[in-house]
Amino acid sequence: MITLTVTAKGQVTLRKDFLDHLGVHPGDRITVDKLPDGRIEVRAARPEGEISDAFDFLKRENGPSLSAEEMNEIAAKGWAGRR
């Protein structure tokens, strides 16, 4: 069992081996559930949904889906800082 220290701000830092076990990286999210007897359960927050949920994102409001060339052009502008 590992003991962690609570800071004056009420924060606890999880050790790298815990984060590796959860499979999380900087910027990822975790969920914490309160359980009986003062226990908590920590899990990696995984995105919910299906890949098909993203398909409508590529459609124009009143027309067909974007072509590959149009998507590449939009991506290139985004990488160049132009939107």
Results as ranks from 00 to 15, higher is better:
R60C: 04
L4W: 05
L4T: 03
L14S: 00
K59R: 13
M1N: 04
T31K: 07
N72Y: 08
G49Q: 12
T7N: 10
D56H: 12
G10M: 06
H25F: 10
R29L: 11
M71S: 12
E50H: 07
V32H: 00
G23H: 08
E70G: 10
S67F: 02
A54R: 15
L14I: 00
S52P: 15
H21M: 10
W79D: 14
R29P: 00
I2N: 05
E69I: 03
G38E: 01
S52K: 09
K34A: 15
R83Q: 15
I40W: 03
V6C: 11
V6R: 00
E61D: 08
N72V: 05
I2L: 13
D20C: 09
K34N: 12
G49P: 13
K34Y: 11
L35M: 06
A54G: 14
T3G: 04
P47Y: 12
A76V: 01
E50T: 01
N62T: 05
R29K: 07
T7E: 14
H21R: 11
L22N: 05
R15Y: 11
L4F: 09
T5V: 12
S65K: 05
S67G: 07
A68W: 11
F57V: 04
T5N: 06
D56T: 00
V42P: 03
G81T: 00
D53V: 00
D33F: 12
N72A: 11
L58G: 15
R43F: 05
F18D: 00
K9E: 15
A68P: 15
I51Y: 13
L66P: 13
P64F: 04
I2S: 02
R39P: 11
V6H: 05
E48V: 01
R46H: 07
L19I: 01
R29G: 13
A76Y: 12
K77G: 15
D56F: 03
L19D: 03
I51F: 15
S67I: 00
I30Q: 09
K9S: 14
G63V: 05
A45Y: 06
D20V: 02
D20Q: 08
T5A: 13
A45L: 10
G81R: 04
S65P: 15
D20T: 10
D37R: 08
M1G: 03
L14V: 01
G38A: 00
R39N: 07
A54C: 14
W79M: 03
L19G: 01
G78E: 13
M71T: 07
V32C: 13
K16W: 06
W79H: 04
L58D: 14
V24Q: 02
D53T: 00
